[in-house]
Design a protein around this nucleic acid. Structure first.
Lengths: 310, 310
DNA sequence: CACCGGGCTGAAAATACCTTTCAGGAGTGA
DNA sequence: TCACTCCTGAAAGGTATTTTCAGCCCGGTG
């Protein structure tokens, strides 16, 4: 056709969308899995389970292996952020090579009801570490940078979260207050909406929801969006309803969950890392005012600690 | 040696030598270069010089780049031990990935004011992972087990925490409520004390304070202790004042902190891991009642999530 | 100097592979 | 039950890779 280097892959990154995903493929699979259809999940699963093996297969081979069709394989590759299967396969080969050299056994079984307490500690710690690594790998630094910029310049910031995410929202609010910003966390949906109405261009609204479809936080974000505020979504489902009102989307990773390890646990870890990144970014950006504010709040609290404990 | 099948097809000969060449590609190129024709040398040279770049090219692209033809590229790939160009390209992608991973930005360094956002993410994630590892290693499983036992049998549980630790306290309370226990988090010191008075033997009181000397949480713990309740302290300073009223002490780790990474950040991570361990332990211990309670709360919340996103 | 043969080379044909289209069909909500 | 949406795979349609083959360069030879 018109292209000379048709599939050339060209470094060109037009819209600046999903990253080609280097090593964070397993994480991406887990993040996107819920939004996949059954057949696509089968493909994604096979890919995540054995990158090296899949890299050796053609589209047809992988389709047969998973009992699906070539079309489905290509669709899955697209969903994972690649232009087509060819590129997914290249990435897979890279991943396989890394694993080969990395040699990480990490035999992490699920937590069982009869696990001794020491095993529980080890497994929980390991899982949370994994969640952190996945989140860091999957976080879009462009989006993050944009959110930081907006926060640093905001007249005021409203943060919405309910349930477990509500605590994360409060954590972020506490942090931002400490560096002299005007931030408030809302977990009451009604108050959140009534406050959102006050926002205007230049202000920032942040919605935190793992599922991406929590009506109670989507509604205030929508209001803020309509009022012209800069809106940010911190969610594990970037394709969820919340995203349609978000100027910037920060994706948290979705870790394996089980009965003894509810989603709320890993999503919280992931969300907090994102929150820390936002906070640190803003602190850097506004260092001149943030540093003295931090010191001041630190000193003010010193009095609350009784006898000095050396 | 003489040629096997001059220009014969000779579809792969498994039994022979021909290693697929993992990472020793540059070496192979040098070894085989003398036996190559001029055009093939040009191709081999390009491949050795920029594996990543070549991996992004199609056979046609690489032919143009080297000023040769597709046929020559394929011949070169064969000479290097691959069945065809496709496989050489996969190997190249793997090689590129390995090189890529080789350069890890000194992630252990402190966060600087002018660090690019990507470094901030990496460093924060790394630090939190470190904190988790430290906490898991330092946690006394005997004390933890004792605390779990007390919680599982408690008539009611009060949890005290202020500031950042207050959020952790709420997190624990939320979790315990979800498995059918009676738990409440207090961040108001006055209310905490008035509630503590209601506790009696068999009940549990938990104080969360990083410094170990936060008067606002020590006071209610003291009251609870005096009333005969089982008391637990989650603190980073096991030698602090809070410990004198604690039956069980769970130690959180104190990670390196800096201006851009206040203690509150790592202490929170550490505290949350301990909280998760407590929660999981209690869930195991009371599985018969906890499991249905968890399912029930999960289902109750499903309604709060708007349109199904599949 | 003319001729010849071997084998490198790239254009083009042939094939394998990847992508797109499209219609049937399962699942869902009314 | 019916209408509807959207998943799904078969097959058509394109690209990329591989193979074939004729031309050409080069050195050797009469």
């Amino acid at each position: 056709m018109k292209e000379i280097f048709s599939n050339g892959t060209a470094k060109g990154r037009p819209g600046g969308e999903a990253a080609p995903a280097p090593a964070a493929l397993a994480a991406k699979v887990r993040t996107l899995a819920p939004s996949m259809t059954r057949s696509m999940q089968r493909v994604a699963e096979a890919v995540a389970a054995d990158p090296a093996g899949c890299a050796a297969l053609t589209v047809t081979g992988l389709a047969e292996l998973t009992g699906t069709s070539e079309a489905t394989v290509v669709r899955t590759a697209r969903l994972l952020g690649y232009p087509g299967y060819r590129d997914l396969r290249l990435a897979l080969a890279g991943l396989a090579a890394q694993q080969q050299s990395g040699r990480a056994p990490s035999v992490t079984a699920d937590i069982a009801v009869d696990d001794p307490i020491a095993d529980v500690v080890a497994k929980l710690a390991h899982d949370e570490q994994q969640t952190l690594a996945d989140t860091a790998a999957g976080l879009d630094t462009i989006q993050l940078g944009a959110a930081v910029t907006a926060l640093a310049a905001a007249r005021r910031t409203d943060i919405y979260g309910v349930g477990a995410s509500g605590l994360v929202a409060q954590d972020l609010a506490q942090k931002l207050l400490r560096i002299g910003l005007v931030a408030h966390a809302h977990s009451d949906p009604h108050l959140a909406v009534t406050n959102a109405v006050q926002l205007r261009t230049g202000d920032v609204a942040i919605a935190i929801t793992h599922s991406g479809s929590t009506g109670d936080v989507i509604e205030p974000l929508r209001v803020a969006f309509d009022r012209g505020a800069t809106t940010v979504a911190i969610t594990g489902r970037p394709d969820g309803p919340v995203s349609q009102y978000a100027d910037h989307i920060l994706t948290t990773s979705t870790a394996r969950e089980s009965e003894l390890r509810p989603a709320a646990m890993s999503s919280r870890t992931s969300q907090l890392l994102v929150v820390d990144c936002l906070f640190t970014g803003v602190t850097q950006r506004t260092y001149e005012t943030a540093a003295p504010a931090l010191s001041a709040s630190y000193e003010a609290l010193a009095h609350r600690h009784s006898p000095r404990t050396r």
